[in-house]
């Protein structure tokens, strides 16, 4: 029998989690003037745009959003098929900014490690914070998220899928045994 995906977040819960994260970001970074969001390709890109929209409403000002690809900064190229390289687009100066890195799922922490290196090649932000929709545990590096939509204990035999309406279909987060 093929494994069946189990729902972790439905569309309403996902949206609620993002709004809460946005408020937490706003609370932590009062003025907001120097806060920019950077979504990690590919899972974090749409989430970063949505968070920026909510934050713009809270702060009543535009919030800049960039995208960051980490394929060139990963440490496991030899271990797998070369990953697709997506564009990195950060059309603003990172120096002195507070950067909120955004990703969908925090797992081993290796993507975030690569993202930190990639980001520091592009400038010297004042500080970097991390926002993730799902923290599923199993960290292999000393990395911790500042803002978490949902903590979900998982086994390494499970897979988490984040679907967003920007890609068609409905917002949903599901978990499935492999």
């Amino acid at each position: 029998m093929p494994p069946k995906p189990v729902s972790l977040l439905n569309a309403t819960a996902l949206q609620r989690a993002l709004v809460r994260i946005a408020h937490e970001i706003a609370e932590r970074n009062e003025a907001g003037a120097d806060v920019v969001l950077v979504g990690i390709q590919q899972g974090g890109v749409h989430l970063a745009r949505r968070l920026a929209q909510t934050l713009a409403g809270i702060w009543n000002q535009t919030v800049l959003v960039g995208t960051l690809d980490v394929a060139m900064h990963r440490d496991d190229l030899a271990g797998r098929i070369p990953p697709a390289v997506h564009p990195t687009e950060i059309p603003f100066d990172l120096n002195g900014k507070t950067v909120v890195l955004v990703d969908d799922v925090l797992f081993t922490g290796r993507t975030v490690r690569a993202a930190l290196d990639a980001l520091l090649d592009l400038g010297r932000p004042k500080r970097i914070q991390l926002a993730v929709l799902i923290d599923r545990g199993h960290r292999e590096l000393p990395i911790k998220a500042d803002f978490v939509g949902k903590n979900t204990p998982t086994s390494s035999q499970e897979r988490i899928d984040v679907q967003l309406s920007e890609e068609g279909g409905e917002d949903a987060v599901t978990i499935m045994k492999l």
């Binding site: 899972g43 060139m72 990963r74 190229l77 030899a78 271990g79 797998r80 098929i81 070369p82 990953p83 390289v85 990703d103 969908d104 799922v105 925090l106 797992f107 081993t108 290796r110 993507t111 975030v112």
Partner: peptide
């Protein structure tokens, strides 16, 4: 260079 140096492991990136 990047592509030929890639391995033949799984495509999926564990984050």
């Amino acid at each position: 260079l990047f592509l030929v140096c890639g391995g033949r492991g799984p495509q999926e990136i564990a984050g």
